[in-house]
Amino acid sequence: MTARDALAAETAPVNSARIPAEGMVEKRGIGLWFTHAGLILGVIVIFFPIWLAFVASTVSQPEIVRPPMPLLPGDQFLENYTKALFSGVNAPVAWMLFNSLVMALGISLGKIVISLLSAFAIVYFRFPGRKLFFWLIFLTLMLPVEVRIVPTYEVIASFGMLNSYSGLIFPLIASATATFLFRQFFMTVPDELAEAARVDGARPMRFFWDILLPMSRTNMAALFVILFIYGWNQYLWPLLITTDPSMNTIVMGLKQMFPSGDDIADWPVIMATSILAMIPPVIVVISMQKLFIRGLVDSEK
């Protein structure tokens, strides 16, 4: 998120070269069992809320409103998920999933593209005002969107971008974390490559496409994982600018499904929606664990 990147790198979860030897410090026998027991307890505590949400998404409303609710899944899985996906409470959740996907992809891809271009310009060219641009971009590392919501809202409203995908995406890519990271990476690319490209008469954009981009692939992927989760999980911004239920993202739409006043919430559908809301980012994290950890270290957001 901010200039904490450098510090994150210092405390990085790198795979240390420690050899797991059978030393005298490792516990064996009963101690080992206690260690496992402690960890399993932790895993259970972490998992419990999700398990409960899953169970609630597979039972019927009467089973929930007469506490205590069952702790094992019921047989309403299909009914609840179909109802959530295709009718929902205010808008079909399938729509919200689509909106979230567009927003998360827009933020992650958009930010990667504009950052690659501007980092390339700043590192590989000398032009008037270069230093100034660099510092202007660097300044944006400091300020989370939460701090400037009211005026940003006014800007979006004056551009007529309320209830639109561009309104959801643009304010969240207006920060320089990624530019800064790509700059750091480009600085480590050997000068000989650019030299050779110049000698061969390659134009700058050709060097960019054929050499720099392929080399940045891992960085781009790691950044993508982090930005995707960041975009998918946005709450406050979509809450402000999507007043039309058909533009809601799933994470913010969830809260809108609670009735106002004393009515009882449709818990099975709400819980099915919660599960649907966490599936895409969780899949991204688990399937790309290595890239995720790397991205977390590179940029703290």
Binding site: S115, L117, A121, F127, L143, E154, V155, F170, P171, D191
Partner: peptide
């Protein structure tokens, strides 16, 4: 960097998207 490319128009164009978005949605607000 020791080795750089010549020209100023191209880098300006490359910077344009970021500068525009940062100005409109960051510095102005």
């Amino acid at each position: 960097k020791r080795v750089t490319f010549k020209g100023w128009l191209l880098p300006m164009l490359l910077l344009l998207p970021q500068v525009f978005i940062t100005a409109a949605f960051f510095f102005y607000p």
